[in-house]
């Protein structure tokens, strides 16, 4: 599904990704762990096309197509979803308006008919309900005044409504208490644990992986994948830290 080959990327003039190679097949969940500043968020931004994140070498294909040739909104329509480490506040724009416009823009881009207001609200209500978010929050401006945990939950509601093929989840577990962690973990399994979908789970901690079992765990350090293993690698990292492994 996703094939990243020898990816180099700069933020400004600074090289951050330095030859990253990674491949995800449909049906797989991959966890990426690594120390602060390793380039994990940069990878998510580069894959979703954030301006200012410049690819200098390498390639990325998504379902066989050149992902890097697409605009951010086209990548979303192609099925890519980035769960933001720091979800953005958009004053004055309600969640409902934002998500309906986003979903219908993606559908239009794929040549599908738009959802009516009623159809959309049905989907939104289901997803918000499953993630324990009340409809009042969905009517409020996007992320404005939401706590850290509420913002992360909102990302998952958005993922449920948009129903992407590939989700890159950037530290979706940070800022969550143990109950919210379980809700979010269940949400990821319910929405994304499907034979035709894949997940790239960026995390600092082993604890989310208790709920969402990864098929592969990678260590990202200094802009590269330095090690790959199964779920047991996360436990090893938790015990020994990154220093040990990078050495």
């Amino acid at each position: 599904m996703l094939q990243i080959t020898n990816l180099h990327a700069n933020v400004g003039d600074k090289p951050i990704l330095k030859g990253l190679t990674l491949s995800l097949n449909a049906g797989e969940i991959h966890a990426i762990m690594g120390p602060n500043g390793a380039g994990k968020s940069t990878l998510g931004y580069v894959l979703s096309g954030r301006p200012g994140y410049e690819v200098t070498e390498g390639s990325v294909t998504f379902n066989g197509n050149d992902l890097l040739a697409l605009e951010p909104h086209e990548r979303a329509a192609a099925g890519l979803f980035l769960g933001f480490q720091y979800p953005v506040e958009i004053p004055g724009v309600s969640n409902v308006q934002f998500l309906r416009e986003a979903l219908n823009a993606q559908r239009k881009n794929r040549g599908e008919a738009p959802l009516s207001g009623a159809e959309f609200l049905k989907v939104a209500r289901e997803q918000a309900g499953a993630l324990g978010m009340d409809m009042d929050m969905l009517k409020r401006p996007v992320n404005v005044g939401f706590s850290g945990g509420e913002k992360k939950r909102n990302e998952m509601v958005q993922m449920g409504i948009i129903n992407p093929a590939l989700a890159i989840l950037d530290e979706t577990d940070s800022g969550l208490d143990i109950d919210a962690l379980r809700t979010v973990g269940d949400g990821i399994n319910r929405i994304m644990r499907k034979p035709d979908k894949a997940v790239l789970l960026i995390t600092h901690y082993q604890r989310l992986l208790d709920y969402v079992k990864p098929d592969f765990v990678h260590v990202l350090a200094d802009g590269r994948i330095t090690r790959t293993g199964g779920a047991e690698l996360a436990l090893e990292l938790e015990r020994d830290g990154y220093k040990e492994l990078a050495a």
């Binding site: 909104h73 958009i90 979903l103």
Partner: peptide, 9 residues
């Protein structure tokens, strides 16, 4: 960027 990453042109 956030709006675009969700599919809005």
């Amino acid at each position: 960027f956030y709006l675009q990453a969700r599919g809005i042109a």
